[in-house]
C-alpha cells in the first residue's frame, strides 16, 4: 500500500478542509479568486488522479482545465453535509478523465505503453503525502477494508478505479473471462460495502 495513504494525523488537515469548503462556497457565488484557492489546494491531487487514468500529460492538462471549469459551474451543487470536498472534486476529476479516455481510441492506452514514462515523470514532482485534505480516520477505514478483500477482488477494483477501466477492459488486461471479472467486482464491492458498513 502506498506510503501516501497514511493514517498519520495531520494537524492542519481539518482546518484546510474547512478552508476548502469555504472556498468552494465562494466559487458558487462567482468568486474567481476563490477558485484559484481551490486550485492551489487541490490541483496536484486532481492532476495525479487524471494522469493516472489518462497516461498522457497534455491530455491530462486539458482535462484538468475542464475539471476546474466544471467546479466553477457546479460549485453551487456541492453540499458539505453529504460529501467531503476532496471526495467531491476527485469524483469530478476521475469522471472527466474516464470520459476523456473513453472518447479517444482506447487501444493505445490498453497496451499500457505510456505507463512507464508517466510514472517516471511522477517521481520528479510528486507532492508530499501529508497534503491529504480528508478525514484521516475515513481514509484508514477505507484502506483497511480494501486490504481485507480477496486478492483478485482487490486488484480488480483497484485497477478499475485507478486506471478507469471497464468490465471488459479489466477482463482483457487481467486475462480472465468477462463473467469472472464481473463476479469478482460484484463480490468485492459487496465485501467492501459490508466492511465500510454503509449504503
Amino acid at each position: 500500500m502506498e506510503s501516501a495513504f497514511s493514517a498519520k494525523n495531520n494537524p492542519g488537515a481539518e482546518e484546510r478542509r474547512k478552508m476548502l469548503i469555504a472556498a468552494i462556497e465562494q466559487v458558487a457565488r462567482g468568486n474567481s479568486a476563490a477558485l484559484k484557492q481551490v486550485y492551489d489546494m487541490t490541483s496536484a491531487k486532481l492532476f495525479g488522479v487524471i494522469l493516472r487514468i489518462m497516461h498522457d500529460r497534455e491530455l491530462a492538462e486539458d482535462v484538468l482545465q475542464d475539471v476546474y471549469l466544471k467546479v466553477w459551474n457546479r460549485a453551487g451543487r456541492f453540499d458539505a453535509n453529504r460529501a467531503s470536498p476532496i471526495s467531491w472534486l476527485c469524483v469530478i476529476a476521475r469522471n472527466a478523465a474516464i470520459d476523456g479516455v473513453r472518447r479517444q481510441q482506447r487501444s493505445d492506452y490498453l497496451s499500457g505503453h505510456a505507463e512507464a514514462d508517466v510514472l517516471e515523470e511522477i517521481e520528479d514532482d510528486a507532492v508530499p503525502a501529508d497534503e491529504l485534505l480528508c478525514n484521516a480516520e475515513d481514509n484508514e477505514r477505507m484502506r483497511r477494508c480494501m486490504e481485507a478483500l480477496q486478492d483478485d477482488h482487490r486488484k480488480s477494483i483497484r485497477m478499475a478505479f485507478f486506471d478507469g477501466l471497464s468490465h471488459s477492459e479489466l477482463a482483457e488486461r487481467i486475462g480472465v473471462p468477462l463473467g469472472t471479472m464481473k463476479s469478482w467486482i460484484r463480490r468485492g464491492l459487496a465485501s467492501l460495502k459490508g466492511c465500510l458498513g454503509g449504503g
Binding site: M1, A44, V49, S87, I122, V127
Partner: peptide, 23 residues
C-alpha cells in the same frame, strides 16, 4: 464518497503553471 477517499491515495503531481492561466 467512498471512492473519493480512494482517489486520495493517488500521488499528487504539480501541474504546470500554464494550466491555471488557461483556466
Amino acid at each position: 464518497a467512498q471512492f473519493g477517499l480512494m482517489g486520495q491515495q493517488v500521488t499528487g503531481v504539480m501541474p504546470p503553471a500554464g494550466v491555471w492561466r488557461a483556466i
